[in-house]
């Protein structure tokens, strides 16, 4: 368990957190290599099923990183994402999977260090939770 390295899917908004990840890279800020970033035009594009499918396909954790509140390029995509993250959490609870495996974060394009911190925080959270309960038996 000690050497468990989680796999974390990040749904990252083109206008903010994806640029923040870029900035973290070009500023040479270190963060854990556990995340796999999936760029989306807006976090409002993410459906509950996207989040669940990521977990089904092998992610130990998933988070959505959208624009700071009030700064969504498409006005309210980040708020919609927040509601869907909430809904995914409660669905996970219904099938006895820890809701903490799914999170929502907000950041601006200028926050390279925040991107790195969030990646660290999420990696730690999932390390504590352990591997996804879907991984016990199977095959994906």
């Amino acid at each position: 368990m000690n050497n468990f390295e989680p796999l974390i899917a990040v749904f990252s908004c083109h206008y903010c957190s994806y640029a923040a990840a870029d900035l973290a890279g070009s500023s040479r800020i270190q963060y854990p290599p556990n995340t796999r970033i999936i760029k989306v035009p807006c976090t409002g594009r993410i459906s509950v099923n996207h989040i669940l499918r990521a977990l089904e396909c092998g992610a130990d954790g998933v988070y959505v990183a959208g624009c700071l509140e009030g700064t969504c390029h498409f006005v309210s995509g980040n708020f919609k994402a927040k509601q869907r993250v909430q809904s995914a959490k409660s669905l996970l609870g219904e099938i006895n999977i820890e809701p903490e495996r799914v999170q929502m974060y907000f950041m601006s394009a200028a926050e390279g260090s925040k991107f790195a911190n969030v990646a660290k925080e999420m990696t730690e959270t999932i390390k504590e939770l352990g591997p996804s309960p879907l991984k016990g038996t199977n095959t994906q």
């Binding site: 099923n49 669940l52 999977i97 879907l134 199977n138």
Partner: peptide, 16 residues
């Protein structure tokens, strides 16, 4: 339908 199907598969996967 998509979401419910995913949840059913996740539940079964969990239970092996």
């Amino acid at each position: 339908v998509e979401t419910l199907s995913t949840l059913i598969r996740m539940d079964r996967k969990q239970k092996g």
